[in-house]
Computed example of a mutant assay.
Amino acid sequence: MTEHLRADPDGIARAAALLAAGEVVAIPTETVYGLAGDARDGRAVARVYAAKWRPAFNPLIVHVADAGAAEAVAVFDDAARALAAAFWPGPLTMVLPLREDAGIASLVTAGLETVAVRVPAHPVARTLLAAFGGPLAAPSANPSGRVSPTTAGHVLDPETGLGGRIAAVLDGGPCPVGVESTILGRSAPGWQLLRPGGLAAEAVEALLGQPLAAPEPSADQPTAPGQLSSHYAPRVPLRMDADAARPGETWIGFGEDGPLTLSASGDTVEAAARLFDVLRRADARGQPIAVARVPQAGLGAAINDRLRRAAAPR
């Protein structure tokens, strides 16, 4: 049985105790629910991979309590510190050189010399990190390649989630951002956008004073999470940038009213927060899915990235 824990002092203490014992626990963040394990414990990290059926060559994000804890794991330069000061806590992940004395299990980095690290903003995640007192490796709390969870109920679902496969879920309510973090990596002479996400690339570029290098095509050996060509996928086929539904398709709209609409007002922030929940409800109908066009600006870039991967051949 998977325990369903309230986000109160008793629930947080129980979650911290399970993590200290090497178990894995789904936790809320502002982006999506993450499946957390002690990033220093190879057995715990292996349980994360096993619960998700996640390929072991796909690295994980290390979640830490603050920027100081991040610098104990990764090597920062002045530019990385400026990004951390501006956007942490929040939906930004940086891929940086791994410190030799970081103590991070090699499974977390998939054998790479870099580590993905972030400081989450969700108050429950922050309280748990403080109670646990160490770094947590936490990919999204869903079967690998499938639709990410934005509520505890999504995680607990035994068919589309991880119910019965993990020790517990710490219920912090719906995730306010709704898509995974933006991932940046160093790229001469500046930074590269490795994955669009909950922090708009325009905000990062405004701080840096230069454009981000574009993401490279997906490869069989990813350098950061979320780069596999097929990911975030429902069980049924999906078609994006559609003008209308074809016979037998479930329609997901944008900028219009309807039973399955990302945002009736055409707001990409609202659409990002609703994306995975709407995809799950459409998937439950068992018909192919058609999704309306979503503009690329702001969080639209992250939405379209997820839809492209959801629509990719599997």
Rank of each mutant, 00 (worst) to 15 (best):
V108S: 03
T127C: 13
A137D: 05
D41A: 09
L92H: 02
D243M: 14
L260R: 03
E205M: 02
R285F: 12
V45S: 08
L60F: 05
V64W: 02
F76Q: 05
A244F: 07
P55E: 06
A20M: 12
A80D: 03
T150D: 07
P89M: 04
P28V: 07
E113P: 13
W191H: 04
V294N: 08
L170Y: 00
G134L: 06
I27R: 01
L262I: 10
R309Y: 01
G178K: 05
F87G: 00
G34E: 07
V147Y: 03
T31R: 11
G111V: 05
G111F: 00
L107S: 08
A17K: 09
A138H: 04
V45G: 01
L275G: 02
F76D: 06
A292N: 03
A46D: 15
A79C: 09
A203K: 12
L207M: 05
P89W: 03
P158C: 06
L238Q: 02
Q221S: 15
D241W: 09
P139S: 07
G90C: 01
D101Q: 09
V95P: 01
A188L: 13
A214V: 14
P217H: 14
T151G: 05
A152M: 11
R118A: 07
V294H: 01
V236E: 07
T2P: 04
W191C: 05
A7E: 00
V48K: 05
T150L: 01
V73A: 03
P149S: 04
L18R: 10
A201V: 14
W251E: 13
D257P: 14
D66C: 09
D220H: 15
D41W: 08
I252C: 11
L262G: 10
P247R: 02
P135Q: 05
D10I: 11
I104E: 13
P174C: 11
H154S: 10
L228K: 14
V108G: 00
P9E: 06
R40T: 14
R54P: 04
P158N: 08
G134C: 04
A167Q: 02
P217C: 13
L238S: 02
A245L: 00
R99G: 06
R274P: 11
V124P: 08
Q287G: 11
D78I: 03
S148Y: 03
